[in-house]
């Protein structure tokens, strides 16, 4: 298989050398991020402590605080040096000033990297968990919508329209401030201690799951409706019940068709998960905002955090493209012949 006819994602479409360069940046970024997560992971720390190797992973509660692994000084020195040269050249030095700013940004990034890595960890598990839990809700919702008869399909439609018709932030506020949900979650003793996140994180997952399930069910509904009705007829003609036909014949095909739309929702949720910041969840955006408040370098921190989001989104698009290829039905290629 050649790369051009199988990869449709932005990164995958790049020709050989550029693709390699983007891939290399991606590998370095993820290696750093995963190493950061591993070395500051409270759960891993407890696990290794329990296994008798307490020093293998040092969590944020452990010996070392979050310190940058890369020193900021060389970048800062380079920035200062370039700025000095720029100053001596006078007004003709716009490009050099830009270069100085880039070095300055790099120095800043090394300083705030550890905090952003911790935020990205929350963003990633918030998004992935909500997507998967949302999928568990979305499948029955979409099946009810398409095959549920007048009552079930209307209930499903009402749910979907209610959730899609109200702002996500309002839903989060309602769940967090309006309902006694957070207090209820806090009443479980293990919440908020020993590596288990605080109640706000659980509320955010509940909120994103509900919200995402509505959007996902719409994508899956469209995909189910694109499965040839003859497929279910054939399933029923050999004696399968309607539910069996849906489970063994319609859903396996429909869910494959839903992957592109599902990817879209995944990418949206990565970015919309930043709304959890407003109910105090320490995810990527909230950390960035806090860093901005501390340093007043809002522009710099938001540029850096935008690159984090971009990396997460591109990775997701790439991974989902691979998933789509992996589950493609032989002979049909990327769902081409689905009329």
């Amino acid at each position: 298989m050649t790369t051009t006819d199988v990869d449709q994602t932005a990164v995958g479409e790049l020709p050989g050398r550029r693709r390699l360069a983007v891939g290399a940046v991606g590998v370095v970024f993820w290696a750093w991020l995963l190493a950061r997560w591993a070395s500051h992971n409270t759960l891993l720390d407890r696990l290794f402590t329990a296994l008798g190797a307490p020093n293998l992973v040092q969590s944020e509660l452990g010996v070392r605080q979050r310190e940058p692994w890369l020193p900021a000084e060389p970048f800062q020195a380079a920035s200062d040096g370039v700025a000095d040269v720029a100053a001596s050249l006078g007004p003709a030095s716009v490009l050099l000033e830009w270069l100085a700013w880039l070095f300055d940004l790099a120095a800043f990034a090394t300083t705030i990297g550890p905090q952003l890595a911790a935020g990205a960890f929350v963003t990633v598990y918030l998004t992935v968990l909500s997507m998967l839990l949302g999928l568990l809700l979305a499948v029955p919702l979409s099946v009810a919508r398409v095959y549920g008869g007048p009552v079930l399909s209307r209930i499903s439609l009402a749910y979907t329209e209610l959730i899609r018709g109200t702002p996500l932030l309002a839903q989060l506020f309602f769940l967090y401030f309006g309902l006694p949900l957070a207090g209820f979650i806090d009443s479980f003793g293990f919440v908020g201690s020993g590596g288990v996140p605080r109640a706000a994180v659980f509320v955010a997952i509940v909120g994103f799951t509900i919200n995402s399930s509505a959007y996902q069910s719409e994508y899956i509904r469209a995909a189910l409706q694109s499965v040839d009705p003859g497929q279910l007829t054939a399933a029923r003609s050999i004696g399968l019940s309607k539910l069996q036909g849906i489970r063994y014949v319609v859903l396996p095909q429909g869910l494959r068709f839903a992957i592109p739309g599902w990817t879209n929702e995944f990418v949206y949720l990565i970015k919309y998960s930043s709304l959890a910041a407003f109910i105090t969840v320490p995810e990527l955006f909230r950390r960035a905002r806090n860093i901005g408040s501390d340093t007043f370098q809002f522009t710099d921190v938001y540029v850096i955090v935008a690159l984090f989001y971009l990396a997460l989104v591109l990775t997701t698009a790439l991974a989902m493209g691979k998933l789509e290829q992996a589950v493609a039905i032989p002979g049909l290629g990327r769902g081409a012949d689905r009329d």
């Binding site: 040839d228 497929q231 054939a234 003609s237």
Partner: peptide
């Protein structure tokens, strides 16, 4: 009672 269809309707996946 088995059935064979004009458009085959084989399970595509």
């Amino acid at each position: 009672v088995g059935m064979v269809f004009q458009d085959f309707n084989l399970f595509a996946h």
